[in-house]
Design a protein around this nucleic acid. Structure first.
Lengths: 215, 215
DNA sequence: TGATGTGAAGCGGTTCACAGCC
DNA sequence: GGCTGTGAACCGCTTCACATCA
């Protein structure tokens, strides 16, 4: 256990480990070694140990890790024992799709509200979730205790939306607009850029040698 | 220009550069130096030059890069001068949202077909796009010349879907299911794992010191 | 002069290998 | 004996700094 800076790559993997443990737990496994975990889920055992060691000494030498125990630890580290409320800005196809996206609830996130600027959409519902005027964003954030905002608006509006979100005191943002956003230092933004992923696939297809992915 | 292995990080940035150039072109800029490009879009100028140099000598010393010229080069490198057909497997909320996702057309991708296993959905349409029985995947891939598959099914079906896709000869896959998939070496998979992104935000929120993002 | 293209240095993350403990 | 936790080696990407050229 060190008081070092923990890289985002590590925390991303923590999330993966938790998923693996959930699967093992559902199969009734009591303990697991970093080696078995690595073999089973195509990970590297040294990396698993190193990642976990950033947060504490969870293992038992000669035995491995207790599945339920480690599961609890990871859940706590990732802050997943607490329910988080989410507000989605942009009630287009993507925003509404995310509104009842299964994975949100999996990860203890609840979508509390949708926001849009389009008069026609305001007041409508997607499932149980109402669409509000984005002008009232700050107000509803306070009322519903929203901690996470999702930006699902076209690229040209994304920066303005981010500023509104920031003013409302939101510190965690998931951005689907394909542009880099400028944010205050204490605001965490995760951008999911589908355009980059697509163009990366396109590049791959354009390569003459689509032969050897190897090992 | 070197015959080296080009990393995915580089190709991802190529996609970003193209976007920047599109913006400059739309503003009527004729030339741009790596330095101005970097300043404007918060990039590193040395990295821009190095990335571009993997693919050729596109710049002019003392001048910079010709915007239109470089735009053309990047478009060609990324294979974006050719239209690509996409098939989306899973006609749930996410799949249908992606079906008319604006960014697809932006990047020269056309969604040719949706696929699902649910009898009730088969035969229906989302916009212009028909939903087919996933059993007929291979057939329709051939007919419509589909090159890219999107996996938008629940995690437990994703691996099976991938195998079906692979058998049909698809080499480029975008996966939204939150599990690591095992693929043949010559198949390129881009996984967009929203659960990891969410849990990473959750971790951030759980940190006691949400103070100093710095620099 | 001004900006590219690139070898070299720097840095962060991954993997190795083993001492230490159950 | 088996497996963790971790210093050290390794590796690849980023950044620097400058020779090179229009």
């Amino acid at each position: 256990m060190k008081a070092e800076k923990i890289s985002e790559l590590t925390t991303n993997r923590m999330s993966v480990y938790l998923r693996c443990l959930n699967e093992l737990a559902s199969k009734g496994e009591k303990t697991v070694s970093s080696d078995r975990l690595a073999k089973r889920f195509h990970l590297n055992s040294a990396q698993i140990r190193k990642d976990l060691a950033y947060f504490g000494e969870f293992g038992v030498r000669g035995v491995g890790y207790y599945v339920e125990d480690l599961r609890g630890q990871l859940t706590k580290i990732l802050g997943l024992e607490i329910q988080h409320c989410v507000g989605i800005v942009g009630a287009g196809r993507l925003g509404t799709a995310l509104a009842d996206y299964y994975e949100f609830s999996q990860a203890n996130f609840t979508v509390a509200a949708l926001f849009d600027a389009d008069e026609k959409k305001i007041g409508q519902k997607v499932g149980d979730i109402e669409i509000f005027d984005v002008k009232n964003f700050a107000e509803i954030v306070k009322k519903d205790n929203i901690e996470v905002a999702v930006i699902a608006v076209p690229a040209e509006f994304a920066q303005a939306v981010l500023e509104r979100i920031t003013e409302a005191g939101i510190k965690a943002v998931m951005n689907f607009a394909p542009i880099p956003l400028k944010a205050a230092g204490d605001v965490k933004i995760k951008t999911v850029d589908l355009t980059i992923s697509l163009e990366s696939l396109s590049y791959f297809l354009a390569q003459p040698t689509v032969s050897n992915g190897k090992k």
